[in-house]
């Protein structure tokens, strides 16, 4: 099946995932169109992170289908490299390589995985570091950077692979409040450029501002979804209302 831009770039259909006997996802379906920004919110343990990790095959699923640009993820013969070239991911704990400088972190995957020319990669990597507003920090090691700076290097590192979709897994949850904004600004810039973004987040104000669609998950299912204006102001489901009243 070939994918065309009028079809969803990421499509989840009736996704089920269990860890042992614990059912974490119980039939989740989401369609994301190219250039869309969607935010997944919900209480802890509702399966948000698992959901996003399934999209780039860090977790496998037991039932259902996930496709990225027509590539079926739930397939034993999946070409993981092909998938990961399409999908970039940023983690809560940044997970930069501590033995490499910021620039080397960004350059490593294109050189080692895509076997691209070092000089070209370096030029692009410097551009990406400038894009996440970290000029002058190219030679710094992750341990010398603040959480927010590390997270922006992590975003640049993912972008270096030229992904079509970016996954953000609670990327501001481990940050100091004053550095949250710089990371959110970076994501906002990306979204404005038309990058397809799937975010798991606790930043409601940010979700309202940036998302095309907000999904509320609870106990492994999507309870409610909609454009932020409707979702935040006119939530229908009592569980959504209760969650929003606690958090807003």
């Amino acid at each position: 099946m070939t994918w065309t831009p009028d079809q969803p770039i990421v499509s989840l259909k009736d996704v089920h995932k269990s860890f042992g006997t614990v059912e974490v996802l119980r039939g989740v379906s989401i369609d994301v169109m190219k250039g869309e920004v969607i935010c997944i919110i919900g209480p802890s343990g509702s399966g948000k992170s698992t959901l996003i990790r399934c999209i780039n095959a860090l977790n496998d699923i037991q039932k259902g289908s996930i496709t990225v640009e027509g590539l079926e993820v739930n397939d034993a013969k999946l070409d993981k490299l092909a998938l990961r070239k399409k999908v970039g991911m940023v983690f809560q704990q940044y997970n930069l390589f501590p033995h490499k400088t910021a620039l080397q972190n960004v350059m490593m995957a294109p050189i080692k995985v895509l076997r691209q020319n070092r000089a070209e990669v370096e030029q692009r990597a410097r551009g990406l570091i400038a894009k996440v507003r970290l000029e002058g920090k190219e030679a710094a090691y992750p341990g010398e950077l603040s959480g927010g700076q590390q997270q922006r290097v992590a975003i640049a590192r993912s972008l270096a692979m030229n992904p079509d979709v970016m996954l953000f897994d609670e990327v501001t949850a481990a940050l100091d409040p004053e550095t949250v904004k710089e990371v959110l600004t970076t994501i906002k810039d990306l979204a404005a450029e038309g990058m397809t973004c799937i975010l798991v987040t606790h930043e409601m104000g940010f979700a309202r501002e940036i998302a095309d669609c907000v999904y509320f998950t609870d106990r492994g299912v999507i309870v409610e979804s909609g454009p932020p204006a409707t979702f935040f102001d006119k939530a229908q489901d009592p569980r959504t209302q209760q969650f929003l009243s606690q958090i807003l």
Binding site: L81, K85, F91, N95, V113
Partner: peptide, 17 residues
């Protein structure tokens, strides 16, 4: 930390790499 494996994996690195 397993995060190192996961972030490298999501960048397309093979296990050996």
């Amino acid at each position: 930390p397993t995060g190192q494996w996961e972030s490298a994996e999501s960048l397309g690195f093979s296990r050996r790499q």
